[in-house]
């Protein structure tokens, strides 16, 4: 009895202000999509730059046929070189584990690695100072050593990606938050309109002794439904973005740049959860605000 009353009233309210309902849902959807994208892209960038973190800026990958003597010679060179700050040796097993983690969503790469494709071991080091020339000369010296396959450093491209994405993320976050506030106000107004349309019923309900919760629940639910439906649209957009990121990461043409530029399945689930909870919260907050301002007991 009570449940079907609440559902009936909520649906009537939503239909009565259909344009405002749509406006609120679209705004919630767009703002949450932007907000969620910021989180996803941020996680992708974090994953890309994972191996550049902890101050490691130069990686010397070793040849597959390297001898123990050659490796010890390289280690000795690094240990004694005054330009090198911190350094570590990452063996084959660790490298494989790291690659599997980075390519968690890239089935093709994962299959290759699991199928026995060798992930090279490496020395990772950070120079004593951030001087670009110093880094370059260190790289050149390492390349010249026997047994070194290839030396990479934190190239300009990675720095550019990080900088651009940081800027884009900030912009998206600002727009997303702005739209979130707009969504809150739209829901506030939608609920206010619904309350105005039903002012006589509310008056009678108070008069005959309906409890405050009984009067409020349909309006609360209306706001929550708007927030939730908006969040579901945002989830659709985020799923599309996640696919696009995964495809770009698998595309051979971009691979060097986009390598690892994906959010893990867990990160996606957490983002989705955050988006849905945020949608519900916005809806509940908007209607609670309207009720506290415009519903006198």
């Amino acid at each position: 009895m009570k449940i079907d009353y609440v559902l009936r009233e909520t649906i009537t309210n939503l239909r009565r202000n259909i344009t405002l309902t749509i406006a609120a849902i679209v705004t919630v959807g767009v703002s949450l999509a932007l907000f969620g994208s910021t989180l996803l892209v941020g996680q992708g960038v974090d994953n890309v730059s994972d191996r550049w973190s902890d101050g490691i800026e130069v990686i010397a990958f070793l040849k597959s046929d390297i001898t123990t003597e050659q490796r010890e010679a390289i280690e000795e060179f690094i240990a004694e070189s005054p330009e090198v700050g911190e350094w570590e040796y990452v063996d084959l097993e660790e490298s494989k584990a790291e690659a599997l983690r980075l390519f968690e969503r890239n089935e093709a790469m994962k299959a290759k690695i699991e199928g026995g494709t060798r992930v090279p071991d490496s020395f990772r080091l950070s120079p004593e100072s951030k001087d670009v020339n110093l880094m370059r000369s260190l790289g050149e010296q390492l390349t010249a050593l026997p047994g070194v396959h290839i030396v990479t450093d934190e190239s300009e491209s990675v720095k550019t990606i990080t900088a651009v994405s940081a800027f884009a993320q900030l912009a998206m976050l600002i727009v997303g938050i702005g739209l979130l506030v707009a969504a809150l106000l739209l829901i506030l107004n939608a609920i206010r309109m619904a309350m105005f349309a039903r002012r006589r019923e509310i008056e009678v309900m108070k008069l005959v002794g309906a409890t405050n919760w009984f009067i409020r629940v349909p309006f609360m639910l209306e706001g929550v439904v708007q927030g939730l439906v908006g969040a579901i649209f945002a989830l659709g957009a985020l799923t599309a973005l996640d696919r696009a990121m995964a495809n770009a990461a698998e595309n051979r043409d971009y691979q060097t740049i986009m390598e690892g530029f994906v959010a893990s399945a867990t990160e996606f689930r957490v983002t989705a959860l955050v988006v849905v909870l945020l949608g519900i919260t916005i809806g509940a907050a908007g209607s609670a605000w309207a009720l506290s301002r415009f519903l006198r007991v």
Partner: peptide, 9 residues
């Protein structure tokens, strides 16, 4: 309505 909104069965 007066009975429904005070939760009468």
């Amino acid at each position: 309505f007066a009975l429904e909104v005070i939760g009468r069965p």
